[in-house]
Every structure is written in structure tokens, then in C-alpha cells.
């Protein structure tokens, strides 16, 4: 399969997300995180957080708006009919709490062929209002050959 690799290295516009208490609650409950640090500001402060804290994987919620333009970019040119989300990794730093304003920037890290499949790897970096990194993500989408 011939892969177009012009988008490798391309960076996409930063996306801002304001983290809200009820959004954290909705996410925590869907995943079964029932510790009061995710739900109750008092319990969260007692545990040393500024406000209710987001489960680490909440990063997918605040990163999504940065990832969509990267994944759907015509220059990247993924064929969605044959695409699967193959792998994912996150490295967390500063915790994210209700009230935080998170800015995420996505880029296309690599486009490579292996075993007749296209591997499209994107990276994301998210920082809070103080400029501290909250998470760094590596998103791997795999497109089957025809």
C-alpha cells in the first residue's frame, strides 16, 4: 500500500477545554470511579486537591477537541472505513481538577507501513493554566490494506 506521508510533523491548532465538576462526575460514574475525591469538593480538598479531581483517563475528554482535526485532516488522509484504534498510551504529570483550563496541542508523529497496514501515530500534549503539563498522549490508528 502506498502511504502519503506529507502530514508527518504537522501540528494542529491548540484546543482549550474548561474542566467542570459535573463533567468529571458524569465521567467518573460511567467508569465506576466512586471515590468522593471525584465527586465531592470537600473530600477532594481534604485529600490535597484544589477541587474535585478528574480520573487520569478523563484526559480523553479534554483532548478530544484537539485530536479530531488531526485525525480527520485530509492531508493525513486516513481511510475510516478500514481504520481501527490500535493502541493508546498516556503519561500523566500534574493532576487535573474542576475549574482548570486545559490546552491541548496535537501533532502527526509518524505514518508508516508495517505488515501491509498503515500505522498513523499522533501525539498530544496538554497543559493547564499555569503552563504545567498534565498529560502527553500517543494515539495509534491502524488502517488495513485493501
Amino acid at each position: 500500500m502506498e502511504l502519503e506521508t506529507a502530514a508527518v510533523g504537522k501540528s494542529f491548532p491548540p484546543f482549550e477545554y474548561e474542566v467542570g465538576r459535573e463533567k468529571i462526575r458524569e465521567y467518573a460514574i460511567a467508569l465506576g470511579f466512586d471515590d468522593p475525591i471525584y465527586l465531592d469538593p470537600g473530600a477532594a480538598r481534604e485529600a490535597g486537591f484544589r477541587n474535585v479531581v478528574a480520573p487520569p483517563m478523563f484526559c480523553v475528554v479534554y483532548s478530544a477537541g484537539a485530536m479530531a482535526p488531526a485525525i480527520f485532516d485530509p492531508e493525513v488522509g486516513m481511510d475510516f472505513a478500514r481504520m481501527v484504534h490500535g493502541a493508546q498510551s498516556f503519561d500523566w504529570s500534574e493532576p487535573v481538577c474542576s475549574g482548570d483550563l486545559i490546552t491541548t496541542t496535537a501533532s502527526c508523529a509518524s505514518i508508516e507501513e508495517r505488515d501491509g497496514k498503515g500505522f498513523y501515530v499522533f501525539e498530544s500534549v496538554s497543559v493547564n493554566g499555569e503552563g504545567a503539563e498534565t498529560v502527553r498522549g500517543t494515539w495509534t490508528n491502524i488502517v488495513r490494506g485493501e
Partner: peptide, 12 residues
């Protein structure tokens, strides 16, 4: 303690 989860990597 969510602060103690440093990284997670998976293959679907």
C-alpha cells in the same frame, strides 16, 4: 490515588 498513576499504555 490518581496522582500515583504515572503512565498507562494499551493495545486494543
Amino acid at each position: 490515588d490518581p496522582r500515583r498513576l504515572e503512565s498507562l499504555s494499551v493495545q486494543f
